[in-house]
Amino acid sequence: MAQPRMTPQDGVAWITGASSGIGAAVALELARRGWTVAATARRLDRLEELARASEGLPGRIVAHAGDVTDAVAMAALVETIEAVHGPVALAFLNAGVASGAGERKPGFDLAAAETTLTVNIFGVVRALAPVMARMSKRGRGQIAVTASLVGYRGLPLSAAYGASKAAMIHLCESLREDCARAGIVLQVVNPGFVETPMTERNGFSMPFLMQVDAAATRIADGFARGGFEITFPRRLAWLLKALRILPYPIYFALMRQVAKRL
């Protein structure tokens, strides 16, 4: 039986990585749909600017600065949000970086890899743990985690970034049944290329590049629709899904051709 999706009447939405890109666009889209959105990132000035942009919408955005790499701070932040605004009904764990991704450099950049893996993996789980615990006690809630189509299989120029997103897909697949038993809807968001400050650094042509507002609409629609995976654009998603079933000799032959064009 399908679990109920959360609505603005159930509580507030919490978004990490909300200062720009997909996080900021989804915060505004949810505010248009009547949600009170607690927006989190490290830069309070950017969050306050986002909150002002929501003025006049059916819902609103409230700024709550926080660093997802600090587990104690994340637990305290969730407690503060719920004390001030009410229960977190929908959590969109979106904070992430792509340090070094999309750039061809000699050797392996250890510092960039450590930054990417720390934020993209541990930044998610440090936010996930406190909000999942509170939702479990209430027996209801909805959590969505941003991964990526890049996480389907190893692609050139995305070693650390792709590995971090593959880890998020695996994490959500593994936790799905635990969450379902606790009354929590768990979703994974796998976007393709979206025009954001993060992708501006990519030094290659990005197929099926989407505008960030269109991506935010797809994501918010996915929250309302339910289902485990929210993925877009579908043409790129199905192409990469098909690549997952190829044996290594064929797959690596294709990737050699891809790498030559980057």
Rank of each mutant, 00 (worst) to 15 (best):
N202R: 01
T217P: 00
R126C: 00
G227Y: 04
V62T: 14
C172D: 11
M135H: 12
I169R: 14
L171D: 02
M168W: 05
G123Q: 02
I250K: 01
K241L: 10
S174V: 05
G17A: 05
P207S: 06
A129Q: 15
G11Q: 08
I22F: 03
A129K: 13
T231E: 08
P8G: 04
I22G: 02
R225I: 06
L47M: 12
M198I: 15
A83G: 15
P233K: 04
A111G: 01
V62L: 11
I230A: 05
E173L: 09
L209A: 07
V189M: 08
Q3K: 11
R104G: 00
I15V: 15
F223I: 09
G154P: 14
T115F: 00
S19R: 03
A214I: 08
L93W: 07
I219S: 09
E229A: 09
A224R: 10
Q257M: 10
T146L: 15
F208L: 11
L90P: 02
D67N: 15
A39C: 02
N94C: 12
G107K: 09
A166M: 12
A98P: 06
A253L: 11
P4E: 15
M168G: 00
F122W: 14
P58N: 05
A180R: 15
M132N: 09
A25I: 00
A133D: 15
E177K: 09
H170A: 14
A112K: 10
M210K: 07
